[in-house]
Amino acid sequence: MTNLLQLLIDALLMGGLYALMSVGLSLGFGVVRIINFAHGEFVMLGAYGAYWALTLLHVDPLLALPFLIVLGYLGGWLLFRGVVAWVLKAPALNQILLTFGIALVLQHIAVVLWTGDVRSAMPEYALSTTIIGDVFVVHGRLIAFLVAGTLIAALTTWLRYSETGRAVRAVAQNHDAAILMGINPGRIYALAFAMSTALGIASGAIVSFLINITPFMGFSILLKAVAIVILGGLGSIAGTVISAFILAIAETMVAYYVPEGAGWTEGVAFAVIVGILLVRPRGIIGSALAT
């Protein structure tokens, strides 16, 4: 059963990355109550950012990461203030359409700027592996996992212990009461949205050295992230992290054990959602930011 152990290791490492990809979406929804359908495109932009940093500036994706995070944060803030803020009080359908529209625009800008060609940014450590007994660990995946873990830990620590972090949780849990505390909800929304964008960009930078980069990669990433966030209970970060691992493991198991399973991995996300939501409609931890 060496293969089983190998599969679990690979799935766990992927799960960390999935978690980072989804946490941003979860934060955005928990606080701002908008599912940001452009989230996948932020991941895509982060991947391109890291790719160009590597190929043009010869800067390793990990070194470029802090800069990309800051850029992502600023971009998200501007996008929120300039565009998204206008639909906060609008019906949910309008919000969905708007963020979908942003996604399409970003995708096509990427195609125009960088063409539809596939890119690949692979620093040395991305491919090398360490063999431990019968199993191997791909360094690129391990690093992605560690970075994802660090960022998520930093986020949850910030949310739990800092003044602004507490304010963000307050707005998510009770908007009016938060105002009574002296918290400016508009600023907190922009902050949460900007952070969710920054997290998306960060996961893109990390994923850049694991998979192929194209302007169209965002959509399948968004699908997985939405599946994970719904599974984990919208707005709950702990739930999101747990369901990220569940999805990664389920996908890997299906790819291995089901005949022609590799063709079904994308479908796993949705099968799992439908299954769990039938049983427990509020997701695994169905409340706002249970950290």
Binding site: R166, N174, A177, M181
Partner: peptide, 23 residues
């Protein structure tokens, strides 16, 4: 102190009080 209390349900008593002194 609003109608229906409106405490922050997922936060501890301590955290609720800390938020009271956010300003």
């Amino acid at each position: 102190s609003p109608e229906g209390r409106q405490v922050f349900p997922e936060m501890t008593v301590h955290e609720n009080l800390l938020l009271g002194s956010y300003a």
